[in-house]
């Protein structure tokens, strides 16, 4: 049984907090943006993408289970495929299919 009202309110809360976070920098630095913030804006994209890669792999357990081998092979495959063809779609689909095969069939 779904509590419709509670579900609705919960979604509203999640939405409001998410949008609040997205608006925050634009509201805080509305007038003049300090130089160091502009500097951060230039270097952050590179650092954040590194962080997001780690974030999506955070539940990998190198010492247990399959030792993160499917993830390692998947990432390596994506990097090599992308270096070779530079086709974003191909790299993503190829890597994902390989990973799915690895965890469903091999491991």
């Amino acid at each position: 049984m779904i509590d419709g009202m509670h579900s609705f309110l919960l979604i509203a809360v999640v939405s409001l907090v998410t949008m609040g976070i997205r608006f925050l920098p634009f509201v805080v630095f509305r007038k003049k943006t300090p130089k160091w913030i502009l500097y951060m804006g230039k270097v952050l994209p590179f650092a954040i993408m590194g962080m997001l890669v780690v974030y999506t792999l955070k539940n990998v357990t190198p010492l247990k289970g399959n030792h993160g081998i499917p993830e390692l092979l998947g990432v390596l495959f994506v990097v090599l495929l992308h270096k070779w063809k530079h086709n974003t779609l191909l790299s993503i689909v190829g890597g994902t299919i390989l990973y799915m095969l690895l965890i469903q069939v091999v491991f």
Partner: peptide, 8 residues
Amino acid sequence: FAMTALFV
């Protein structure tokens, strides 16, 4: 894993 691949 599509998400990971995209970020990579």
